[in-house]
Design a protein around this nucleic acid. Structure first.
Lengths: 334, 334
DNA sequence: CGAATAAATGTTAACGGTTACATCAAAATA
DNA sequence: TATTTTGATGTAACCGTTAACATTTATTCG
């Protein structure tokens, strides 16, 4: 590959003039500029950006840790990030962590090893966060979607508690009194928040929480399917199920139908996220809509603010949610 | 940030010894090694990998161009890539191109500007391919999933024509004679291949192709929904629809149900890809299963072979497919 | 014990850009 | 014309690491 010295030689100028032609064209005479441009074209010269980044200490890369790129909601968030990053000349290095801490660490290290300028985490992860602080303070990181309660990092999130409360209240208003819940991954703060919202709503309605109606799940279709099987054997059988995401809800809905129940006549099902499939399943899913792409855009913007030193105190950006009532929820059966 | 010279000074050795301690520990005396390791720990030294990569000319990065990360099939392919790449110490730089050629070019340039070692394209794209050849030959690139017919690049693909033939034959065997098809994006070779397979099957059965039964689509749920509306107004109405991917099929199925048709009693629907949702929708979708993760793994392996110069002639790896018959297809109504 | 050999360590030049500073020529001013 | 100012260009140091080569130190053997 031709380098800047080859170009300089061919154009009979110094390397500085070549560099200036590319960086500050106005600081070089028109005829030198032309000679340089010709030489560049003739040699097919492309600056080695690795060298530029090394020299400048800025990589223009952002690492994004995603628990599962196959999660449709995350996929939308990533799209938003990619857009916002591209607008500012940054590239996204995507890490599909699958919850694996080794992978998380491997990619998180890209920041401390100067391969990336900053980090966005789509999942609250305490151990990782701890190891990311050093004597100079915290690494440039933003925590999005699923966030930690007390973190020094900027955060962009949803009021999951309020959203879960709204959905549970929706079910209560439809007359449901036995509302099961299929939770998200154990350790996740997001799960706890949504669970808290569910409890809040029941308490506000003067009802107590039946702990036996809380079922474990992990955001996958199959975990929703499995949890639903357990729900079917409850007695009395719940008349509604609130799932912590849409995949789980669709898995559960399928299990109910396989077992001969009608949704929502026999049992109502509600989800969370409003993925594209939610409005195309049968029946269309009542769910909470989140501005996924906007989440991504905001997270990137926030991180760039951090990198530019434009932020003094870590902000918490709360994105709006909307309850989308579709056909999967209906009045409680008599 | 502490650099290698700081460590050398602190350990009272030369930079070479520090470097050797990290690269070839066996070539340095045990007691020096210990001094160095202590100094590294005390200073919290982390090698600047940007410098390493610049020096070595190897970035250990692979760029992957994906039309849409939100496509569930692609998400699985990406997972496979990430795994295989990580095993070999490579990172994936993911580009969500959304079919935008500027974005494709931007990311593809990362190879020629030494920011990445190689490129994987999940979509056949002739214009891009053309610009990727230079006087030294072709860029290190692998074309996966959707591939060009006559390309000099290694390719990992499916026999889409045979798979579409198999699915169409399946529908023919169920007695269907009016089989509509919802196609993929216009320009895509994959669309043409699957269409060819559909034609083959009809011809083999001694039937002619009714061009009015071919409907445009773009792999999204909504395009399937829209196409289905048109299918409903055909007369006679087709008794089966073969969709070029599962999202399209699910969108179409939803449209049929909204319009009071029963699947498969009134109309059969078949998809392609076997995404997770396919077995959890109602009715579960008959589709073609592709080893998505294996696609990703293979593409990465192939690219690493290219980079290592282990490949003489561009191979075409054909992955196996399987027809998964579920409940969305049934005998043709009388 | 001294020479030959092996092992450990040090010195330094790359890698490909950017940019502060030096230099030089031309234009402007006295 | 001599002097200053301005603009264009060149020289070389620097970013952090690696590794070829030089040098020193330890070990083996005659």
């Amino acid at each position: 590959m031709a380098n800047i010295r080859d170009v300089a030689q061919r154009a009979s100028v110094s390397v500085a003039t070549v560099s200036r032609t590319l960086q500050h064209p106005d600081r070089v005479a028109a005829k030198s500029r032309e000679k340089v441009m010709n030489a560049i074209a003739e040699l097919g010269y492309k600056p080695n950006l690795m060298a530029v980044k090394f020299r400048s200490g800025k990589t223009q890369n952002l690492v994004v840790l995603v628990p599962a790129v196959s999660n449709v909601f995350f996929a939308r968030v990533i799209s938003g990030m990619q857009e916002a990053a591209a607008e500012h000349g940054y590239a996204i290095l995507l890490a599909n962590t699958t919850g694996n801490e080794d992978i998380e660490q491997q990619y998180a290290k890209m920041v401390s090893t100067s391969q990336a300028d900053g980090l966005i985490q789509l999942r609250a992860n305490n151990p990782l966060d701890k190891s990311l602080s050093n004597e100079f303070g915290l690494l440039p990181m933003v925590n999005a979607c699923e966030v930690m309660q007390d973190t020094a990092f900027p955060v962009v999130t949803l009021d999951n508690r309020a959203a879960a409360n709204a959905m549970t209240t929706h079910l209560l208003e439809l007359g449901h009194r036995h509302i099961a819940m299929i939770k998200g991954p154990q350790s996740s703060p997001l799960t706890l928040e949504r669970l808290a919202g569910y409890r809040d709503a029941l308490h506000q309605a003067g009802l107590s929480v039946d702990e036996s109606l809380l079922f474990p799940g992990d955001f996958t279709l199959s975990s929703g399917f499995d949890a639903a099987q357990h729900i079917l054997s409850c007695s009395p059988r719940p008349t509604a199920v609130f799932c912590e995401n849409d995949e789980t809800a669709m898995g559960a809905m399928h299990a109910f139908k396989v077992n001969g129940l009608r949704v929502p006549d026999d049992i109502s099902v509600a989800g969370f996220d409003d993925i594209a499939f939610a409005q195309y399943c049968d029946p269309p899913l009542t769910t909470i809509s989140q501005p996924a792409e906007e989440f991504g855009r905001t997270a990137v913007t926030l991180l760039l603010d951090v990198l530019a030193g434009r932020i003094r105190k870590a902000p918490r950006v709360i994105m709006p949610f909307e309850l989308i009532a579709r056909a999967s929820t209906g009045p409680a059966p008599q």
